[in-house]
Design a protein around this nucleic acid. Sequence first.
DNA 1: TGGTTATTGG
Length: 637
Amino acid sequence: MRRARLSTRCFDTKSVLLPSPVPAITDIINATKFELHHCQPSCRHHQSLSSGYSHHETQAELLHAYVIKNGSLQNLAISNYLLNLYVKKCQNLYHAHQLFNEILTRDIRTWTILISGFAQYEDFKMVLYLFRKMQSEGICPNHFTLSSVFKCCSTLCELRNGKAIHGWILTNEIGLDVILVNSVLDLYVKCGALDYAKRLFKSVEEIDTVSWNIMISAYLHIGDVERALDLFHGLNSKDVTSWNTIIDGLMKNGFERTSLELLYKMLESGHMFNAVTFSIALNLVSCLSLLELGKQIHGQVLRLVLHNNGFIRNSLLGMYCKCGKMEEASMTLRTIPVRISCDDSLADVVSWSSMISGYVRNGEYEIAFQTFRFMVNEHVVVDKFTLTSIVSACASKGILELGMQVHAHIQKIGHKVDAHLYSSLIDMYAKCGSLNDAIKIFKQINDLNVVLWTSMISGFGLHGQGHEAIELFECMMNEGIIPNEITFIGVLIACNHAGLLEEGCKYFELMQKVYGIKPDFEHYTCMVDLYGRSGRLNEAKEFIQENGISHVSAVLKSFLSSCRLHKNVEMGNWASERLLKLEQSDAGSYILLSNMYSTDHRWEEAANVRSSMQQRKANKLPGLSWIQLKNQVHNFN
DNA sequence: TGGTTATTGG
């Protein structure tokens, strides 16, 4: 999001010495330009250049001071020119707003320049405030103000407001131009009112490429890839955005290969890549783990000197992180240029948080923690994405102390906590053994979504509190929240840890019949575990055979541990035969089998398994323990 | 002197 620079510098009218009032606007403007270029080194222009003050700002302030002095501020041609100078060239909405208030009789252009300015910098509260004020003063909005307001409603998802304004346009029979049609289309699409968008799209006689692009993007957002492709292929005048939209949308809907084909087709058809295409192409490369292609694109980016573009740099960084190349990712982070505008600082925040999440994703927790500490010490902006990654790293490593410190840091700086951060906090407290803290957080959340319910249900499950987990799950369904596949994994694990076989079977059926969720290997493994641990080894075996999952090593391992638990060597042999065929060099499988024999005092067979394990060089990595001392994690055997 | 679509991190 772009932000305007809000300078609070005041005017110094006394230092401005200009000729006596000139009546024509061009003369006034030229006079200030002349002053700007020819004044002596001691004047403020030169001082301002050395202090980083822009040429436009100096010109605007000179002009501002001058028109105040000679009383021509109320000349609308002059004040609108000056207002535009503040908004466009100086990007200083604070001064623009100040000037706006000094203008006593504003015309529609005065309002438009300021409203468009705030819309451009996404201060939508101001846009709506000014729009309402304008209407209350009896000024009729024009196309420019209306499209700014639609952009605002679209970003804030204010469908009702937007619809009302669209209705007002229709009743007042105001003709919609192409850009306004597109603004309304975008509003309906972003607010999920696709029917309204379709109706509008059909009602337009001559549809331009931007409208097509908006509709292609709309179908992609709801996952209707077929319609999106139809629209795309039917579009004769494809521009680079049409290609970018379809390539990105296909990738996000899981059609990565088709997306890549279209990327090549785009090249073949002679369309030039722009910065957005490069960013999307790099994301596609990460999805498909095509590191070599990614490196080639990186080379092209360097040749075209696009590597300073924030989006591209972050896509590059993300690609290296996702391909496990943390060294290359870190090199990309080190190439962050000196910040030129506020836009770049946002890109920097993304770079840092991507880096942290990359370390966490690749299991390099200690470097993630070190980087986080560096960010805090060096006052690098830490946002909710970074915090979520760090909290989940604490959960994975079980480091309660650091997790609590991060939680305290969040509260101290008054950071807004969203659902992602809340769920990672619940998960962290639960995984670090502090279930009560997890419950405390869960209870203080007003808008609970399915992820938050799932985190808490899984938390109870993890602590063996199966009944509480089930109670919460029932409560969630009563609230009308639809469980997802992960919720059911949490529920099944909870049943498992509490030995609730009957309930587990009930929910496994509910998942498929009521919620239409197809079981995944993880659900199957939970069920095999549930039957097995309850001693129902025959039923577990039948379940494996019925569902055709005897080729899944996690399922067989789970079954084998149940066989060991209930000392059923015969069943264990059945599972281990299959397991060892699947994973000849997996030490875990041999150890499970050997342990089963040892439990049944069959020492000779246990020793045979161990020796065949050595023959096949399936060595088990020794387990590591760790301890946290003064913010440092120490590992030992 | 003003307005539209597509891209990055959990």
